[in-house]
């Protein structure tokens, strides 16, 4: 299985800094090609959110470089990935918390990380960034760890109310601002000829999944240039619709 990748981010209309961080890469391992993508949406009062998001990206990058090759020496098991990624997130939570306490600020970041091997995907999620799978349809893999999503799942709120609710940006947890972090994991089989997308909440607030599918479905994304162009198109569409947040999207196309 082969991968084409792209990553695009935009500061958006109103923010002074871009606190999103993202990274996508294709890795050659002893078990064949793999693709890894991670996207963090940082937050923090005094423009420190990018510190948090970057810190998490670097930690995962470090894992890709140092730990993944070791794992590839044997069969990769879901539980090993889960254990190691949980450890990274917990450590990052402590590091960012300590940093915040020192600086007298509260800062934190969401994380959505995805590893695609030849046959399986591994996704970790904390917060409200999302992973999608686009094949013949668009499917959201992750679940938002937000206050409104929980209200919806508890039946206290409908989807429509959640879209408009003033609390839609309140996360249940994030790396760096929660006492403890409990990441969600999603494992599954990789589809050939599919697009895997990671995006921050800014990317999806103003545009509909159908619009995303129209521009990012596997059939229209034939090379990395096209992927990037179409991502930028959607980012600009967001800005036209007055999205105020930073906007980021990472894509992996399988074939």
């Amino acid at each position: 299985m082969n991968f084409i990748i792209s990553a695009n981010t935009d500061i958006g209309l109103t923010k002074d800094t871009n606190q999103d961080s993202l990274s996508v890469k294709v890795i050659n391992t002893s078990q064949g090609r793999m693709a890894f993508a991670i996207l963090c949406d940082g937050m923090g009062g005094l423009a420190k959110g990018e510190v948090a998001s970057a810190s998490v990206i670097k930690a995962f990058d470090n894992w890709i470089c140092n730990e993944l090759p070791k794992l590839c020496q044997g069969p990769i098991e879901d539980s090993i990935i889960r254990k190691q990624w949980e450890k990274i997130v917990t450590e990052q939570n402590e590091i960012i918390k300590t940093y915040g306490a020192k600086q007298g600020v509260k800062l934190g970041t969401t994380v959505v990380a995805m590893l695609l091997t030849q046959n399986r995907y591994y996704i970790l999620n904390v917060g409200d960034s999302r992973a999608y799978e686009l094949t013949t349809e668009i499917k959201q893999i992750t679940q938002d760890q937000t206050f409104v999503a929980r209200e919806v799942s508890l039946g206290n709120m409908t989807e429509e109310e959640a879209m408009k609710d003033s609390r839609r940006s309140v996360l249940l947890q994030c790396v760096g601002a929660s006492d403890s972090v409990y990441p969600d994991f999603f494992f599954g089989d990789v589809q050939g000829n599919a697009v895997y997308m990671l995006c921050c909440d800014g990317f999806r607030h103003e545009i509909m999944p159908e619009e995303i599918y129209e521009k990012l479905q596997p059939n229209v994304l034939m090379d990395d240039y096209q992927m990037s162009q179409n991502s930028i198109y959607l980012i600009e569409l967001n800005k036209q619709r007055k999205e105020r947040d930073n906007i980021s999207v990472a894509l992996i196309r399988t074939f």
Binding site: K106, S166, S169, V170, L172, C174, R244, D245
Partner: peptide, 22 residues
């Protein structure tokens, strides 16, 4: 609470539902 930005429950304390506004 400045809620335009993404925030985390941990940072807003034990905010009562009405404290989120609306």
């Amino acid at each position: 609470k400045n809620l335009a930005d993404t925030t985390c429950l941990g940072t807003v304390g034990y905010a009562a539902p009405e404290q989120f506004g609306g």
